[in-house]
Design a protein around this nucleic acid. Structure first.
Length: 964
RNA sequence: GGGUGAUUAGCUCAGUGGUAGAGCGCUUCGUUCACAUCGAAGAUGUCGGGAGUUCGAAUCUCUCAUCACCCA
């Protein structure tokens, strides 16, 4: 049965993947040679809630290429797959599922234990989506080892057992005991939607249209001072008596929690009032709070009024100022971002705050964060509603800074209006919840990252771990050198619960189990810390955790440290840096020797793909349309290190066509009996026909190129080298060259050519397999009987010894002759179907020999019917100048002499331009003296060849002129 | 504000000091037995601007411009 004209990816992919899996082709160590080195890649675990997007497709294609390449080379290979439990995302998904049915209890109504049961149910039912999608892509992971960052957690159902929970808890306890983990009240990013702390990496700072309000903070006791403003040259431009200090803010609702007003120590404008008290212009008049005017380096004198209100509990910069200057921290909001309703009446709380401000009460003796300074009228309001009311109240009282109304004079317009600047401000948003993040003072657990960062920095500095592209080292260094304490607690339920218990007195007991904690606590009643650990804390242990640590498993022994990590640039901080720190802190070894950081896949216009823009290309849809191989090849060919990919379907179609081209070359071979009686023994052919010798050498070249490219993680170079070889060499030339031999050759020539072509096509399949696994495996199986599937075929090692320089030279001569003839014919409008005679006036021995050996294929491809010697070229002849010869197509009557003249002049013009450059260099003594010898020699040879060719063209032109 | 990168054919991009390239698109021609998801031929470049180093610069240095991303 003849082969189909195209590869039916949709029909074959599933079948082939199943066959690989069924045969255990992907299991750790499959196809390993005895005593082989190991090669291990850890998949960056996708979220359990995730589904395959282009970034995954790209990332996993690159991993699969490396893995398949090493497996075929006989390494003991493991590609370790798994998923991340994704705390917030998963909890969000399950809560949303529950909410779909109104009769369901909410998470809180359900309670922690019940809810977690629901999460596990969801995980078992829907958590495998991305795994199946990765399989469609062709990812050759060892799925039997699929890992999960929550495996083995209490309450995990059957089938979810494993060591990960133990590993996480053990690391926490060890780090706690070493003092590397501590609990403390710190300002953290708080997500009011999910009511949990999040890390600063989970915050997106987005520029939004905002406002800057300007308010007057009256000086206490009606004091006044002379406010003087000067220009750059020191000339006074404004001088007035003031009884207030002007403050600009983008968040007026936080004024209620101000602890001070700060100015820069060098700011002369406010020097007279530093140390005095001023009044916060909001809240019941009888309880106006007084706060001190202090100096600090933080305020920028040139920004706004130069004076900054300090709200230590609700702003990161202010927090620093407050700590430096012992300014009390007043918390204004609850976990939902509403103004607090707890605590004592405002009058009492304000009195306490006033006592602190006036120095009658020590701030350190009480917990100021418990003091609720929200006046009754604002209590319970949403933070944004509170803002509106605060602004209205201050303005009504006349304490807003006023400016001239541009519309003054118009009907109903006042002369002055409050000074409100419209300006873009950077606002923090939760990357999951999309709500405005609130800096909040809360009790959280932290890793003392600074204490463990050293080894992670050293490992990259001294090259034990290499980051590619190299410039991303800087990103890594910059982040680690400025590392902040890592907040690892989350106020969620889905995750590893923190293994710390408290007794009635609040004393902490950190232990792996409740029994151990209980033993430590004696008979006291313990309650466990309700918080869970940041997901990245557990995924930070991914390399050792997936291999079975803390057990000393054979896999851990064998595959750790792993080899390469392939990941997106966006999680260098999230994950790469943390894995480096954690592995070095826990087992004192680097987790991998190479980190390949890749860029983003964008749409064809260069926009980031996003659901809201609607420009998302779904890899699964693309696989349906073009086949997985085409997607993979496209991503690979575009994977220039460190550059974003702009993906267009047109490009994918092009590489789908490339697959078809390969398919049809194989089909040609099959139709010509190339694979009949084909019994490869693993050796390379040693044919005698020049054409065959030539293609064997070209194959050896591309094999070396591919290996070199992959070894250097230059995936695009590997893909492009293969594309150029398979299409440009094998299909365009070799298949055509083979036709006369296969069809009209002697039995020996036929046999040799069949054997060579079978070998060449096999090499194409082998070399392409890591990038295009499906079509190559299908052809491998279709073309011949095989001992092993292609996925386990031996990767070749042959090299330059297969290159025959004479065959190379000869075939390149033949190719250029054919190209010259074709070009001349096309330009002179010789009908493509016309068989024409050819003459030569000179042809050296090499040329003569080349012609003789390749006559049949030259005639066929250039559509020539004879070659004869001539004394001179006849009238009306197209001249073909090649190395070592002048040939011509006598076409009197068919061609136009004038057109031939134009054609020759054009070629000559091009040649002369090139010659000008070459000879200019050669005439320059400095070039000859200082350039490397081989460069000079090369230039000289090139100049000679070009001169020779130009002479031939000139001679031809002269003849044309005589005739005319 | 700090950092990083980009600027090469109409488009998307390779190209680490020695003859400016690929794919797509475009034009013309072509159904001869692998392939029209094809073949043949062709056109298109002040390599962002300027200066410098060098025998020689798309490539190294400086500078300017524009754009992008990351961090504050």
């Amino acid at each position: 049965m003849p082969m189909e004209k195209t590869f039916d990816a949709a029909a074959a992919e599933q079948r082939l993947y199943d066959a690989w899996e069924k045969a255990g082709c992907f299991t750790a160590g499959a196809n390993a040679k005895p005593g082989a080195d190991t090669f291990c890649i850890m998949i960056p675990p996708p979220n359990v809630t995730g589904s395959l997007h282009m970034g995954h497709a790209f990332n996993n294609t690159l991993q699969d290429i490396l893995v398949r390449w090493h497996r075929m080379r006989g390494f003991d290979t493991l590609w370790q797959p798994g998923q991340d439990h994704a705390g917030i995302a998963t909890q969000m998904v399950v809560e949303r599922e529950l909410a779909k049915d109104k009769s369901n209890p909410t998470r809180r109504e359900m309670g922690r234990e019940k809810f977690l049961e629901k999460v596990w149910e969801w995980k078992q039912h829907s958590g495998g989506t991305i795994i199946n999608q990765l399989k469609r892509l062709g990812a050759s992971c060892d799925w039997s080892r699929n890992a999960f960052t929550m495996s083995g957690a209490p309450g995990a159902p059957e089938g979810e057992d494993g060591n990960f929970h133990d590993a996480v808890i053990r690391v926490f306890v060890e780090m706690y005991n070493k003092g590397l983990i501590y609990r403390g009240k710190r300002l953290v990013n708080w997500d009011p939607h999910f009511e949990t702390a999040i890390s600063d990496l989970e915050v997106e700072n987005i520029e939004v249209a905002g406002h800057m309000w300007h308010f007057k903070y009256p000086l206490a006791g009606g004091e006044t001072y002379t406010y003087v403003e000067k220009d750059e040259d020191g000339n006074v431009i404004l001088e007035e008596e003031r009884d207030y200090i002007s403050i600009a803010t983008t968040r007026p609702e936080t004024m209620l929690g101000d602890g001070a007003v700060a100015v820069h120590p060098s700011d002369e404008r406010y020097a007279p009032i530093v140390g005095k008290l001023c009044e916060i212009p909001v809240g019941p008049k009888e309880h106006r709070r007084l706060i001190p005017i202090i100096t600090d380096e933080y305020p920028d004198p040139d920004f706004g009024s130069g004076a900054v209100k300090i709200t230590g509990a609700h702003d990161f910069n202010d927090y620093g100022v407050a700590l430096r200057n012992r300014i009390p921290l007043y918390v204004l909001m609850d976990t939902k971002g509403h103004m607090r309703t707890d605590g004592k009446p405002y009058a009492e709380e304000a009195a306490l705050a006033r006592a602190i401000a006036e120095g009658h009460q020590s701030a350190s003796s009480i917990d100021t964060t418990a003091v609720n300074l929200v006046p009754e009228k604002y209590r319970g309001l949403d933070r944004f509603e509170a803002r509106k009311q605060v602004i209205a109240d201050i303005t009504a009282e006349g304490l807003a800074v006023m400016v001239e109304n541009p519309k003054a004079g118009e009907e109903g317009e006042p002369d002055l209006i409050p000074f409100v600047e419209n300006k873009p401000i950077m606002q923090p948003f939760g990357d999951r919840s999309k709500v405005v993040i609130e800096p909040m003072l809360t009790d959280q657990w932290f890793v003392d990252a600074e204490a463990i960062v050293g080894p992670a920095l050293d490992a990259v500095r001294d090259g034990r771990t290499q980051i590619l592209p190299e410039r991303d080292r800087k990103v890594y260094f910059h982040w680690l050198e400025n590392i902040e304490p890592w907040c690892i607690s989350r106020q969620l339920w889905w995750g590893h619960q923190i293994p710390v218990w408290y007794d009635e007195d609040g004393k902490e007991y950190c232990a792996a189990t409740e029994e151990e904690a209980q033993a430590m606590a004696g008979g006291k009643t313990l309650t466990r810390d309700p918080d869970v650990l940041d997901t990245w804390f557990s995924s930070g242990l991914w390399p050792i955790g997936t291999l079975g640590w803390p057990e000393k498993t054979p896999e851990l022994e064998k595959y750790f440290p792993t080899d390469v990590l392939i990941t997106g640039f966006d999680i260098i901080f999230f994950w790469v840096a943390r894995m480096m720190m954690m592995q070095l802190a826990v087992v004192d070894q680097i987790p991998f020797h190479t980190v390949y950081v890749h860029a983003l896949v964008r749409d064809e216009k260069g926009k980031k793909m996003s659901k809201s823009l609607g420009n998302v290309l779904d890899p699964l849809e693309l696989i349906d349309e073009f086949g997985a191989d085409a997607i993979r090849f496209t991503l690979t060919a575009m994977a220039a290190m460190g550059r974003d990919l702009k993906l267009s379907t047109q490009r994918i179609a092009g590489y789908r066509n490339f697959g078809t081209k390969l398919w049809n070359a194989a089909r040609f071979a099959e139709m010509n009996g190339v694979f009949e009686n084909y019994n490869p023994d693993g050796s390379s052919p040693n044919p005698s026909e020049t054409v065959n010798r030539w293609i064997v050498g070209e194959t050896a070249r591309v094999r070396a190129e591919v290996d070199e490219a992959l070894a250097a993680y230059r995936f695009n170079d590997a893909a492009n080298a293969l594309y150029a070889f398979v299409w440009g060499k094998v299909c365009d030339w070799y298949v055509e060259f083979s036709k006369p031999l296969l069809m009209d050759g002697t039995p020996e020539q036929q046999a040799e050519t069949r054997a060579t072509m079978a070998w060449v096509i096999d090499q194409c399949l082998i070399l392409l397999h890591p990038i295009m696994p499906y079509i190559t495996e299908e052809l491998w199986g279709t073309l011949g009987k095989r001992e092993k599937m292609l996925v386990h075929a031996d990767w070749p090692t042959y090299g330059a010894e297969l290159i025959d320089a004479d065959a190379d030279r000869e075939m390149n001569w033949v190719i250029s002759l054919i190209e010259e003839v074709r070009s001349a014919r096309a330009q002179m409008r010789v009908p493509a179907s016309a068989q024409v005679p050819m003459l030569y006036t000179e042809l050296d021995a090499d040329g003569r020999a080349a012609w003789d050996r390749n006559e049949a294929l030259i005639k066929r491809l250039a559509r020539i019917d004879s070659l004869d010697a001539a004394e001179t070229m006849p009238k009306g002849c197209i001249t073909i100048a090649v190395e070592g010869g002048t040939l011509g197509l006598p076409l009197e009557g068919i061609i136009d002499v004038a057109a031939e003249k134009v054609r020759l002049e054009k070629s000559l013009g091009k040649l002369e331009k090139e010659l000008g450059g070459l000879q200019g260099r050669l005439k320059n003594p400095k070039f000859v003296d200082s350039a490397p010898e081989d460069v000079v020699e090369e230039t000289r040879e090139l100049a000679e060849a070009k001169t020779e060719e130009a002479d031939k063209l000139r001679a031809a032109l002269a003849r044309l002129a005589e005739l005319a």
